[in-house]
């Protein structure tokens, strides 16, 4: 916590440091985006048939506005490094809403990354081949993609001023 306060004091706006000083006990561990040199946004998309200006029908991922059970939703998370320095050891965690079922092999990233999953709400993450469910008879089996309830992307570094995206797809129950 002291380290975070130092960073806030050193690198962020004056308002942020005042906030940290005035409420030292209640200071949140999570920084608001407006206070951070890094921004992350999430968007839900759905595949729809739309008409081009020339009247041609094409399928396109658009803002999810009309979603019913059974539909696939694509979540695209964009990370922007607005700071003047590289950021490293970037770990992006996306809990999967209980109304959604993760679709196998749909988690991706734009550049290089390591993708891991959790079946305990994000307490532990592991690669699919290392993610096991303990059964009633004491034996273990590989977790099924539909049992994943969080996705984690680990990126080595995002250069200063650049952005990257990570994504996954899920089906509405």
């Amino acid at each position: 916590m002291k380290q975070m306060t130092k960073i806030l004091l050193a690198g962020l706006l004056a308002g942020a440091s005042l906030h940290a000083e005035s409420e030292p006990v209640a200071k949140p561990e999570t920084t608001k985006q407006s206070q951070s040199p890094v921004e992350v946004t999430t968007r839900s998309l759905q595949l729809k048939t739309v008409k081009t200006p020339k009247g041609k029908k094409v399928k396109k991922w658009v803002r999810a506005t009309e979603v019913v059970p059974g539909d696939t939703v694509r979540y695209v998370n964009t990370v922007r490094n607005r700071s003047g320095q590289n950021i490293e050891k970037v770990r992006i965690v996306n809990p999967i809403n209980p109304h959604l079922i993760y679709l196998a092999r749909s988690a991706k990233c734009a550049g290089g990354c390591t993708i891991r999953f959790s079946i305990d709400g994000g307490k532990h993450f592991a690669a699919p081949k290392e993610l096991f469910v303990k059964m009633k008879n004491g034996k273990k089996r590989l977790a099924l993609p539909k049992e994943y309830n969080a996705v984690e992307w680990v990126i080595d570094a995002i250069p200063a001023g650049e952005s990257t995206t990570v994504e996954f797809k899920a089906r509405l129950k």
Binding site: V38, V79, Q85, E88, K89, R91, I92, V93
Partner: peptide, 8 residues
């Protein structure tokens, strides 16, 4: 989404 990182 939650993101954790370190400034270089």
């Amino acid at each position: 989404v939650t993101i954790r990182f370190q400034i270089a």
